[in-house]
Design a protein around this nucleic acid. Structure first.
Lengths: 243, 243
DNA sequence: CGGCGCGTTGATTACTGTCAAACGGTGTGG
DNA sequence: CCACACCGTTTGACAGTAATCAACGCGCCG
C-alpha cells in the first residue's frame, strides 16, 4: 500500500485508539493489490470464497443480495477506509456481493497476511474486530429504519449516516458530498420502488433540509434533518475511546 | 459457570472449530453470574455501559430499539449459547436493549475476564470474533427480509432461521419448538402491525407448511417453507470449517 | 364475577408498488 | 450537424399491501 491508501486504514483504526509505531509499520507492510471499478461493477461476487479482503480507497461500494424474483437489497454502503468484507476472512463464503456505487477504487489485501497480523498483534486484532462491530451496529440501524420508519425518515437517516461517516474520514467539502447512485439503487438500499424513491425525495427536498441534484447532496439543515430522521450518531462510535 | 451453562458456550464455539483442553479450561474458569428474567424484562438497557457480557443459557432474548413515537423494532432473536452483547465489550455503549422473549436465564460474564482471554488466546479470540460475524450475517438477512420480502416470506424466513439455529444447539424436539413471543412482539421483529401479523400468520398456516398454536411452532414441511421464504442456511455458518 | 392480556376478525384509511408515458441529457452513427 | 437510442428522472393513474380503528372471544387470575 502506498501512503494515500494506507493512510485511510490507519486513520480508520486510529480513529478509535492510538497505534504504536510498530503497529503502524505492520499495516504499511501489508501487501495490497489496487483495482478500479466502474459503477455497478462487482468487486466481490455473492457465494464466492475470496482469498483477499477489500478496502475501499476512493468512491462508494455497497453490499448487495439478490432474490429469486430478480429483486435486490443493499444492506450497507461503504466509503473510503471501510474494510467491506473483512468478515470473509473468517466466514469464508460471501453471503452478499460487493458492488461499486459510482466509480471506485479498492485495495485487496490477502487474508493470509491479515490472519498473521491477528496472530501476532492482539491490539490490532481488537481494533479490526471493533470495525466489524461498528459495521454491525450500522446494520441494526438499517433494520430499525426499514422496519419502523417512514420513507422520508429512512432517506433522511441514510443521508445523516453518510454525511457523518464521510466527515469522519474527511471527504466532505463544506456541507455537501458526491453521492452517485441512481434512484433505482437508492430504492435497493431503502427497500422501495424507484418511483417511490423519486416521490419521497421530492418530499424531502420540499422540507428544505436537503438539496440533492446531479449526484451531489447538500445538507442544508443537519440539525432538523437528524431530528426528523431520529438520527443519533453515537452508534457510529466515531469518538475516541481507547482500550 | 457450572457444567450445563459452560457447555452451551463451548458447544457454540466448538461448532466452528475444535478447542484445545487448555482453551476449554480457560472458558470453564470464566466467572459468571446467573440471572433469570420474566417475559418482557430487560436484561440490558439501551444506552447503558455494561461491565459484563450476557450469554443466553435458557429461553429466548431479543435486541430491541425504541423510537420517539413509542414504536419498537427488534433486530435479532437470541437462543441458548448466544453471546447477545459481546460487542458491548468493545463498543462500550449499548445501541439497543436486550429483552427477554418469554422467561429466560442468562449468564453474565465480566468484560475484564473476557478481555484478558482475548489478550492471551488468539485462537479463542478468533472464534469469539467469528460468532459476532455470524451475528452480522443474520442481521443482513433480516435487512433483505424487511426490505424485499413479502409478509409471508418474512415470517417463514424467521421460522426457518430459528428452526435451523435451534437444531444446531440441540433444543428442537422432533420438528417443533417452543416460541413464546406475543404477536405484538413478532410484529416488532418483522416490522409489521399486530393485526397484520395475525393475518399473515393465518395465511402461513393455510399453506400447511407450519403449525403454530399455544406458543409452539411445528415445522411440517421444512423444504417447502424454506423454498417459499428463499431460506438458504449457509449464511448461518453452522458447518465446521476450522481455521 | 370482572378485568386484563392476547388472539381474531371486519371495515376503513393510508402507504407503497406497478404500469405507462413523457422529459432531458448524452453519446453514437449517418 | 442532426436523428436516434439509451439512461435516468419525473409525473399521473391505478392496484395491492399494510396500518389503524373498533369490536369480540377466550382463558386466566384476583
Amino acid at each position: 500500500m502506498n501512503k494515500d491508501e494506507r493512510s485511510f486504514l490507519i486513520n480508520m483504526l486510529e480513529r478509535h485508539d492510538n497505534l504504536s509505531d510498530e503497529e503502524r509499520q505492520a499495516i504499511i507492510a501489508l501487501p495490497a493489490r489496487m483495482r478500479s471499478f466502474a459503477s455497478g461493477e462487482e468487486l466481490v461476487a455473492e457465494d464466492s470464497r475470496p482469498e483477499e479482503a477489500c478496502l475501499i480507497v476512493e468512491g462508494f461500494a455497497a453490499r448487495a443480495q439478490y432474490l429469486a424474483n430478480g429483486k435486490r437489497q443493499i444492506s450497507a454502503v461503504h466509503i473510503p477506509g471501510d474494510f467491506v468484507d473483512l468478515h470473509s476472512m473468517l466466514l469464508k463464503t460471501m453471503d452478499h456481493a460487493v458492488i461499486a456505487v459510482g466509480p471506485c477504487r479498492a485495495a485487496f489485501v490477502p487474508h493470509g497476511n491479515l490472519r498473521r497480523l491477528t496472530e501476532t498483534h492482539p491490539h490490532l486484532t481488537r481494533l479490526l474486530w471493533h470495525t466489524t462491530l461498528v459495521d454491525a451496529a450500522i446494520q441494526r440501524a438499517w433494520i430499525v429504519s426499514l422496519g419502523r420508519m417512514s420513507a422520508e425518515q429512512q432517506m433522511g437517516h441514510l443521508l445523516c449516516e453518510l454525511y457523518t461517516r464521510l466527515r469522519a474520514v474527511g471527504v466532505i467539502e463544506g456541507d455537501s458530498f458526491d453521492f452517485p447512485p441512481t434512484q433505482a439503487m437508492i430504492g435497493d438500499m431503502l427497500g422501495m420502488s424507484t418511483v417511490y424513491v423519486n416521490k419521497t425525495l421530492a418530499n424531502l427536498r420540499s422540507t428544505g433540509y436537503v438539496e440533492w441534484q446531479d449526484r451531489r447532496v447538500r445538507i442544508v439543515d443537519y440539525e432538523r434533518l437528524a431530528e426528523m430522521a431520529e438520527f443519533d450518531p453515537r452508534y457510529l462510535n466515531l469518538w475516541r475511546e481507547p482500550r
